[in-house]
Design a binder for these strands. Sequence first.
DNA 1: CGGCTTTGACCAGCGC
DNA 2: GCGCTGGTCAAAGCCG
Length: 193
Amino acid sequence: MEYYFGNPNFRHSAVDNMAASPSSEFMISDYLILEDVVDYHHEECWSQSTETESSEKATSSDASHGFGDATSTSTNNIKCKNKGLKRRKAEVSQSITLRTRSQLEIMDDGYKWRKYGKKTVKNNSNPRNYYKCSDEGCIVKKRVERDRDDSSYVLTTYVGIHNHETPSSYYTQMSLLHSDDWNSHPSATQNSS
DNA sequence: CGGCTTTGACCAGCGC
DNA sequence: GCGCTGGTCAAAGCCG
């Protein structure tokens, strides 16, 4: 199975982002590479409010593995009695949405996810599923739902940055991404809308 | 028995 | 101010 960017614009913006703000610890490899990137957000408030904090702890405590005792940061979310949008706003500030043509809603992106919620949202008869990265201390979340217009497509929204090692399987995907023949892939020449 | 999924309830932002 | 809505929690159940 091959993974690739179908939208050259995303590749460009992501690389630009890394070059422009190397200190933000943003990496493409924190996300799954799939057929199409629908939406992408990156705001400084994310790294300041949540992710950088845990990343710094991780780096100082266990740099070799890329993560450490980040339970204190995760409890900022979990133990807070104020459920809902206060947390949501911070988390949504850095996200990426991928549109994938797939029969399966759950795809193996190398990370281990734990489902924590399911919701039927407005204007979409298909339920939206909520997942958290099950790696200890990692607060990355993803939402998975079928495209309301074309149920053969799956919309996957990743929120946050993994603060642990990228799965080995992912490096295969990244090597495909950076290969010279990336632009020659059929999807790279498709419309980028 | 531990980890995961399901699902109803809760909460707070947003629009009117 | 109120209702709608999306995101999350957490208890219960399921499964290997």
